[in-house]
């Protein structure tokens, strides 16, 4: 029964994979850009460790690992701009999704999982490999850490998807989706720890970041990978990611359903 239930999600995920795998040139172009940025960020962050030492639990090696890992994960988890759902809402195509016997957000999530697999393979792993060949990176200390990292990435994808769904759903109400999107992406970029590790933030800023769902999208899996978060802390970190995933999914669904009601009542 549970398998039959997931069968549909699996089919959506396959399509999600196929859609992105169908554009190899785009993937290659994205990988190229990811890698160039990886080099820049690695050198900038290395300049912080000219005198050696440690910042917020990160040493030189962990920081280089962070630079390349975030480069790969950002593509996999997709913290950048996404307007697929918002576009369907604005064009009215969403109506065709509503007559199907599956909630559009669930279909979207399954689709996004497929996408993330494609991006993990073609845009996630290669920069990390390049980084490890050129700079050398630290790897998890054992299979348990690898497992926790994998779980954490999976949860990060769900949190990221739910967050993207929320700013897309805003298209039901807002004419100005561009501004909202830019705002959402920039906040996600900064507070997820993509620009600079959250642990490097001065205390008040770090406290603000930790109170948002953004670190759960990127910083948490990286912290687990480099061993900054270890032991029992890993369980707590995963639990907080799970909590954010559920909370944001519920919020996205609630907003979406209200948007649909508005659409139905007011006729768009």
């Amino acid at each position: 029964m549970p398998l039959a239930f997931l069968r549909l999600d699996l089919e959506y995920a396959k399509r999600g994979y196929a859609r992105y795998a169908a554009y190899p040139a785009a993937t290659l172009a994205g990988l190229f850009t990811n890698t160039v940025f990886g080099f820049m960020r690695a050198f900038i962050l290395l300049a912080l460790f000219e005198g050696g030492g440690e910042i917020g639990g990160y040493d030189r090696a962990a920081t280089v690992t962070y630079a390349w890992l975030t480069q790969g994960l950002a593509a996999t988890i997709f913290i950048w701009g996404w307007q697929d759902l918002g576009l369907r809402i604005r064009t009215g195509d969403i109506a065709t999704d509503l007559i199907r016997p599956v909630h559009p957000l669930r279909a979207g999530l399954a689709f996004d999982v497929g996408r993330s697999l494609c991006h993990a393979i073609f845009r996630g792993v290669p920069p990390v490999v390049i980084g490890s060949l050129v700079f050398g990176i630290t790897t998890p200390s054992g299979p348990a850490v690898w497992l926790a990292f994998g779980l954490s990435c999976g949860l990060a994808i769900v949190v990221s998807y739910a967050f993207r769904a929320i700013y897309n759903v805003a298209s039901f109400w807002l004419l100005d989706w561009r501004g909202t999107t830019i705002l959402a992406i920039t906040a996600a970029n900064f507070f997820s720890g993509f620009v600079i590790p959250v642990a490097f933030f001065p205390l008040p800023l770090e406290a603000i970041a930790r109170a948002t769902p953004f670190p759960a999208m990127l910083q948490v899996p990286v912290d687990i990978f480099v061993g900054r978060v270890a032991g029992a802390e890993v369980v707590a970190a995963l639990a907080s990611q799970l909590a954010w995933a559920i909370l944001l999914l519920l919020a996205a669904t609630w907003l979406f359903d209200r948007g649909v009601r508005r659409l139905v009542v007011q006729g768009g």
Binding site: R178, G179, I182, A187, F200, F201
Partner: peptide, 25 residues
């Protein structure tokens, strides 16, 4: 107005990365 002010504010997050770096070194 919202877009312009929003753009103005969020571009500070861009510069914030540099300030964060210099908070450490």
């Amino acid at each position: 107005a919202l877009q312009t002010v929003g753009m103005f504010l969020i571009s500070f997050l861009d510069f914030a990365a540099i300030l964060v770096i210099f908070a450490n070194v």
